[in-house]
Design a protein around this nucleic acid. Structure first.
Lengths: 155, 155
DNA sequence: ATCCATGCAAACCCTTTGCAGTCCA
DNA sequence: TGGACTGCAAAGGGTTTGCATGGAT
């Protein structure tokens, strides 16, 4: 059984990156009044271990010892607290990924499934303008970009 | 029983607009080898009668005499043939609406549920640029804009 | 006469929920 | 200790599918 509680900050050796991420998220949740539990840490850890957008099922498969409901509840909590954001594939399948805070969009590779952040994109203003031109008061939007990543495009 | 087959083009009196839409779509489908059937016409008619983005359930409710499966199959056919496009609400509920051919996006009113087309919007170029800057070869995108329509914004 | 389309019901998938027991804080 | 959290299993909803019948071409 591994050390679960995030109280071992005195370690001399740096903790693995994923463990750090888990600690950070757990700390954030603690600040909001959510408890630090082993199953919850496992869910967060599994999410952090994913290399591309994942499904709830992926986490369940990676955590056979954690109840399905717990995985779903944990995932929902992470989304609600903005630790994880939703990603919508081209076929409308819903996936998740650790969120790099702040507003941004994703480019999804149709071949390998990789996801890249689309930053510094001034779509907002364009949309804002087009919306008000049509008498609309824009309050939000949803955008996903599909294509091929650099590696897959050269194949 | 109403005249179902689209062979009565010799009518002296103009047909109601919705009927014309149904005829057009049926004709398009016929050109692709799909049959002209009464249930299918009913589905198309019900879709055309909607004033805002609708769910499959809406059609089922409007067509108690048509089998659920038939409604779903008909709807899917319409999407596949580009007669109807999908609309994604802010809560990710999936809806549909007759498509005004050509690429465009929708602005959805969170209050009344109305949908307006967002045309003449050069988001594409912006995205295209941002994507290739990140080494991505963009092939498509999904965009929904949420807010309040003119009427609901003034409330 | 084909064989596509329909209707029913059951199957399906994914997610949520009820509840009793467990465990942080 | 008490309330939050967990796990199981069952319920839930929205959509699809299998199969025998019916209908368009």
């Amino acid at each position: 059984m591994t050390t679960a509680n995030g109280k071992h900050s005195g370690h001399r050796h740096p903790r693995p990156r994923s463990a750090v991420v888990v600690d950070e998220i757990v700390a954030d949740l603690a600040g909001r009044g959510y408890r630090d539990t082993e199953p919850r840490r496992l869910v967060i850890g599994a999410a952090a271990a994913q290399t591309r957008p994942f499904t709830a099922e992926d986490l369940c498969a990676a955590l056979p010892c954690v109840g399905r409901a717990t995985v779903y509840r944990g995932l929902r909590l992470l989304v609600e607290t903005d630790q994880v954001c939703r990603v919508l594939l081209e076929d409308r399948e819903l996936r998740y990924q650790l969120s790099h805070k702040g507003h941004h969009h994703h480019m999804l590779c149709a071949v390998c499934g990789a996801s890249a952040d689309l930053a510094d994109c001034d779509v907002e203003e364009t949309l804002q303008a087009a919306a008000s031109a049509a008498g609309f008061q824009m309050s939000g939007h949803w955008l996903e970009v599909y294509g091929r990543c650099q590696l897959c495009a050269t194949d």
